[in-house]
Design a protein around this nucleic acid. Structure first.
Length: 552
RNA sequence: CGGGGCGUAGCUCAGCCUGGUAGAGCGCUCGCUUUGGGAGCGAGAGGUCGUCGGUUCGGAUCCGGCCGCCCCGACCA
């Protein structure tokens, strides 16, 4: 089909919007793909919606290919369902409908499980249902254009199986479908073990796409054998240079020294040979000491895993009461509460606070001077090695473009979605959830596919296949070129506006269709047009007749 | 929710410090000339300066409240 730029609502902007920071945010707004309505609320303009639909269609095809069946569930969700599963109170991220017993669905596990109650027999399993629908979430802080929003369209799929084997099969089928989706979108994305959230199932995988702007850190081994979310990555730090070993811990006066760095300087030792004490207070009021190496940072996510429950950093008063000293001089020796030490502290002797202001202990050894529980607590950092093969680890900011996880009978039990199994037993359905946000995928694609002049869409998701630029005098030839391509089934954007050549070229680069065809003065002489590859900039001259013969 | 920044024309911004009644560039409309990488000349349209209140003879400008937006952090099925 041919689409005439002179008649489209395609407001491109010469300048970057003042409030944009992320590349995808700037380019999608400048290119006229999206417009902001309010914080985290966006309208997809005609061009942006075309791209969104292309991404959707790829997702749809891959879901159908693994037996998915498309449905559509309502946005309004009875709160009663959420009360039944116990999520009503936890759902502080949901928008309530004031005066009505509904909430605007932030996700659809409850609703889909409500329908799954119609499944009666193992003979009907497995099932895989999915829909594209609006999700509303009270995000604390929307940001980065489409990267984090309060309302968005999500493809959420849900599987129901009879046993663990089926669950695993459904999960892996979806994992593979997701890989195909990202490959078709030419989006570089990695499946990594997800941080264990509230669901906490062992099948919980995030798909992270490296991008210039994002909220996740993707940790990846140079050898390609390891990829993980920075929050839970198990990276191997360098081995510290230890000072001489002591038979027993001894005090050393360290006046005014409260940081590990200054402590190491003062003693002339490796910071990695010191330990850092992070006291936290549990909900019951007891103080637990988390201990990491002096050159490491405590990962709150890992601490949460090691110490379930909502613990928080202890207050100065609590620290004083529990240790008899202030922050900066704290250590495990002599502390009566629980100590959780990072694995890096298992072997070797470290300098630790002496629980006396201005005093530290050298030669402190786990097992001899204190008895900790060991856990992985450290935040991975640049310079760490791969836990599998010792390779160099790369750290990249990334966007979560998909999340798949298994929720077992978390919803089916309370909602009484059961089936009769082969053995005559009534059992709860075992569910899985598979989410992907086409809008976020769009933004991630732009993050990965752009240059100084604008977006470089992969052909599979480009708003149009070809952008035909008609320059003065050659309108006729441009029309012919557009017709020829349209006849081949291509979607053609024909720039027939009364604008300068430079402006048309700049817009074409910004909008980023994979191919640009220019008909101008030269075309009047030889009947040929310039065919330019957006990604490579390569240009060749072809006759309009040859356009149809070329492979695209 | 904590920290920081910003709200002036459709867009990007200046003016504010040192109060005197609003500007530039781009875009838009009309005319003429131009026309292969964001044209030139001429003539126009367009803003209750986020909002409410205070100080003042006088507020875009000074003071306070509120609202909105962006960034960092917290949070994130």
């Amino acid at each position: 089909m041919i689409f005439r730029a002179s008649q489209l609502f395609l407001p491109t902007l010469r300048d970057d919007p003042a409030d944009a920071d992320a590349v995808s945010h700037k380019l999608l707004v400048r290119g006229g793909f999206i417009r902001q309505v309010s914080a985290g609320l966006w309208t997809f303009m005609p061009l942006g919606w075309r791209v969104h639909r292309k991404v959707e269609q790829i997702v749809r095809e891959e879901m159908d290919a693994i037996g998915g069946q498309e449905i559509l569930m309502p946005l309004l969700t009875p709160i009663e369902l959420w009360e039944t599963t116990g999520r009503a109170n936890a759902a502080n991220f949901a928008f309530r409908v004031e005066g009505h017993p509904y909430l605007l669905a932030p996700t659809h596990e409850e609703t889909v499980t409500f329908h799954a109650r119609e499944i009666q027999s193992y003979k009907q399993l497995p099932q895989l249902w999915y829909h594209f629908s609006v999700k509303d979430r009270e995000e604390p802080r929307p940001r980065g254009g489409l990267l984090r929003v309060r309302e968005f369209i999500m493809k959420d799929g849900y599987s129901f199986d009879r046993d663990d084997e089926g669950v695993k099969r459904s999960f892996e089928a979806n994992r593979e479908a997701y890989k195909k989706i990202f490959a078709r979108c030419e989006l570089e994305a990695y499946d990594v073990q997800a941080e264990s959230g509230v669901m906490g199932g062992k099948f919980s995988v995030d798909f992270l796409a490296p991008s210039g702007s994002g909220e996740n850190v993707l940790v990846r081994c140079e050898n390609g054998d390891y990829a993980a979310d920075g929050d839970i990555a198990q990276a191997v730090p360098h081995v510290p240079t230890f000072p001489e070993t002591l038979v027993s811990a001894e005090e050393v006066v360290t006046p005014g020294i409260t940081t590990c760095e200054s402590l190491a300087d003062f003693l002339g030792i490796d910071v990695a040979a010191t330990s850092k004490a992070m006291p936290v207070t549990k909900p019951d009021g007891s103080v637990v000491l988390a201990l990491v190496r002096g050159d490491d940072r405590l990962s709150e996510m890992k601490l949460y895993d090691a110490l379930p429950g909502a613990s928080r950093p202890s207050t100065d008063e609590e620290i004083r009461a529990a240790f008899g000293a202030s922050g900066g001089s704290l250590g495990p020796v002599g502390f009566s509460g629980e100590v959780i030490a990072d694995e890096t502290l298992r072997d070797g002797q470290f300098v630790a606070g002496a629980n006396k202001d201005g005093v530290h202990l050298r030669g402190v050894q786990a097992g001899r001077d204190f008895t900790p529980r060991f856990a992985d607590l450290r935040e991975p950092k640049e310079g760490d090695r791969c836990p599998l093969d010792g390779g160099h680890l790369n750290f990249q900011t990334a966007v979560e473009v998909g999340h798949i996880f298994n929720f077992g009978s978390f919803y089916s039990k309370p909602l009484e979605a059961t089936f009769l199994d082969e053995d005559g037993q009534e059992k709860p359905l075992l569910g899985g959830s598979y989410g992907i946000g086409p809008g976020r995928v769009m933004a991630a694609i732009v993050e990965q596919h752009n240059d100084d002049n604008g977006i470089v869409w992969p052909a599979s998701v480009a708003p149009y296949d070809v952008h035909v630029v008609a320059l003065p005098g050659a309108e006729e030839i441009a029309e012919q070129a557009a017709e020829a391509l349209s006849a081949l089934g291509k979607d053609v954007l024909l720039d027939d506006r009364d604008q300068r050549a430079g402006e048309k070229f700049a817009d074409a680069d910004l909008i980023g269709c994979p191919m640009r065809i220019t008909a101008g003065k030269k075309s009047l002489e030889d009947g040929k047009v310039d065919v330019r590859d957006r990604a490579t900039g390569e240009e060749r001259r072809l006759s309009v007749a040859d356009l149809g013969k070329e492979a695209w």
